[in-house]
């Protein structure tokens, strides 16, 4: 069984963070989350990290792996070589709580502000006859609110008030399928210097998204909608 080297960012707020090497034996079929969990279980119980579902549904285990935002639970060890350390650091642009742990509540509060519905009609079944007794089949929205896109976005680095890719993508989803949401309020939220117009198209959100959300495209569609709304207001004579 190969021995993997992990270089984890360790430390607590107030102190200076450092990178420490850990060695852990696991089969190549294992995932990065298994390696980190094993280090916690067998080597260092003070290691802080977030995880829950281990199959990219809860969005808890986002980190930076060799600089790039990933979910540890779907990052297979076989992608790496046992000869070179795998560097694992916490997500950027969130308050740091220590080791690999960050506080995601600022993002969650923004998502709550959008009121993004998380269950939708299963688009695949929309055109199929359902068995008697089933009115509809629902499924969760794609966004798992993991925060990878916020960490990868260079604009988030410079503008604390920026709504961020996940939130803008959520607004765009809600506008497309409002499910009782207040669309006028959502448009106002997005039509702001720190909203849809703040994006500089670095495209990293879409590149790191583990869940097919494609925030970059969503922001583009959102802007087209906002421009159309403005034209409508001009032609409609004010308001």
């Amino acid at each position: 069984m190969p021995t993997w080297q992990l270089r984890l960012l360790r430390g607590r707020p107030g102190g200076s963070p450092r990178l420490e090497i850990y060695r852990v034996e696991l089969p190549a079929e294992a995932y990065l989350i298994d390696a980190v969990e094993k280090i916690w279980a067998e080597q260092d119980r003070s290691l802080l990290f977030r995880h829950a579902c281990h199959h990219a549904s809860c969005g808890a285990c986002g980190v930076r792996v060799n600089g790039r935002e990933r979910l540890m639970c779907i990052t297979p060890l076989r992608e790496f070589s046992p000869d070179r350390p795998i560097q694992v650091e916490p997500l950027r642009h969130f308050p740091w709580l220590g080791d690999l742990l960050v506080d995601v509540s600022p993002m969650m509060r923004r998502m709550a502000e959008v009121g993004f519905a998380i269950v939708r009609q299963d688009e695949l079944t929309a055109d199929r006859p359902l068995p008697e007794g089933i009115e509809r089949i629902t499924r969760f929205e794609d966004c798992i609110e993991c925060g990878l896109c916020l960490s990868a976005c260079p604009v988030m680095a410079a503008d604390e008030a920026y709504l961020g890719p996940a939130t803008l993508a959520a607004i765009e989803r809600m506008l497309k399928e409002p499910r009782g949401g207040d669309t006028a309020r959502l448009l106002t939220l997005a039509d702001d210097p720190h909203g849809a117009w703040r994006c500089h198209s670095a495209m990293e959100c879409t590149a790191v998204c583990p869940s097919n959300v494609d925030p970059a495209s969503a922001i583009g569609r959102l802007r087209r909608r906002l421009i159309a709304e403005r034209f409508r207001r001009w032609i409609g004579g004010g308001r």
Partner: peptide
């Protein structure tokens, strides 16, 4: 969303580690 000091945080946009073409394009721009 506060974390690091403002100057350190604001310098984040020049950090290319882990970035791809989009991030490089943004930095060069």
């Amino acid at each position: 969303m506060k974390e690091a000091p403002r100057w350190k945080r604001a310098s984040g946009w020049v950090d290319l580690r882990g970035r791809r073409e989009g991030g490089l394009a943004f930095l060069l721009m």
